[in-house]
Amino acid sequence: MELIADFAVNYGLFLAKALTVVIAIGLVAGWILSMIAQARAERDGDQLKITHVNERLERMADTLNATLLNDSERKARAKRKKVEDKQRRKAEKLGKRHKPARLFVLDFDGDIRASAVESLRDEITAVLQVVEPEDEVMIRLESAGGMVHSYGLAASQLARLRDAGVRLTICVDRLAASGGYMMACVGERVVAAPFSIIGSIGVVAQIPNFHRLLKDKQIDFEMHTAGDYKRTLTVFGENTEEGRAKFREELEDTHGLFKHFVARYRPSLDINRVATGEHWYGSQALDLALVDEVATSDDVMLIAARDGRDVFTVAVHHKSGLLSRIAEQSRLAISRSLGESGLAKVVHRPQ
């Protein structure tokens, strides 16, 4: 009887363990499937939002006039507007009214990784499918720069518009430095607010080294590479003068590419004068030909609307779940703490 009892107990424990493992595997599998489903939902849930700026401006004007004008003035304005609307509809009916040119407004708020390029590329793709020869695209740009390859891609997205023959205006209300200016210079017209920060055409790279600390603690660090310059500087190993020289050479090469890119789109620039890593305010940047006009993006849109052009803001919103939002907030916090007003050369290359 004792043997049977022991067998029953052991068998029961075995079943409990097996059941626990099965449940654990089921939970993990369920979690993975839910994450995949969530990722698909987020991908398929992207939304393209278009806002007609003219209507918003008109509502603002109507609200102000309702307060500022007396009864006779409001009636006269309403009568005049009614006549204008009637004439416009009649012209459209007779086919005499030309379709007004449009101004498409896109936003780019850059971090160190130029993460906003994911939305920018979709917005540009959408606009390119509907843009007509008389239309124009305006980018409201703000960025202190970041990684070379990331901002190279962002600038290339803007170049798609120029290559397609689309008039491109870049508006900088606060900041377009380094990688931000790499993007801005692609514009056919660059407009900057008077005290916006412009320039910083330079490259920066920095890396800590813990070799002496490890040596003091008698901790060995080994790194094996194939290729003389697979690694030039390291975090834990002992850096050599040869490695430092090669690293500085790579920085100079990157800076040369940056200068060549800016000079291609802004041939009137004295590139050697402005490619020192310095930055200037908008009014100073105008004197240096870094920008073409001193104004705000609001002025550009308001003038376009007054000229009878239809102004639309275009934005792609990528839906994200809780985990994605937490990761994004963490990334932004790190970007703010590490951000530099200079293109950042990637120190660690892919294996």
Rank of each mutant, 00 (worst) to 15 (best):
E132S: 06
Y11C: 12
F221P: 01
R189S: 05
K246A: 14
P208E: 07
H260R: 15
D220G: 11
I334G: 03
Q87G: 02
G237S: 08
F14T: 10
G146H: 04
E118K: 14
H318E: 07
G12L: 14
L128T: 06
T276H: 04
V105D: 02
P100F: 09
V311H: 08
A41S: 13
L48F: 11
A275P: 02
F7H: 12
D6W: 13
M301V: 11
K345L: 12
V291N: 03
S72Q: 13
D298Q: 13
F108Y: 06
L168K: 03
D111N: 14
M183K: 02
T240M: 08
T313W: 02
V300E: 03
R102N: 03
A193W: 06
G339S: 09
D107K: 01
P194E: 09
L106E: 01
F195G: 09
A76P: 05
G187C: 05
A295G: 01
D85E: 15
T234S: 15
M147R: 13
I201C: 03
E134F: 07
I23N: 11
Q218M: 05
I124N: 07
R189N: 06
H348A: 08
Y181H: 03
K319S: 07
G321M: 07
F258C: 03
L168D: 00
T63W: 14
S341A: 06
V22T: 04
D287T: 10
H317S: 08
K99D: 07
H255I: 03
R97W: 07
M301K: 06
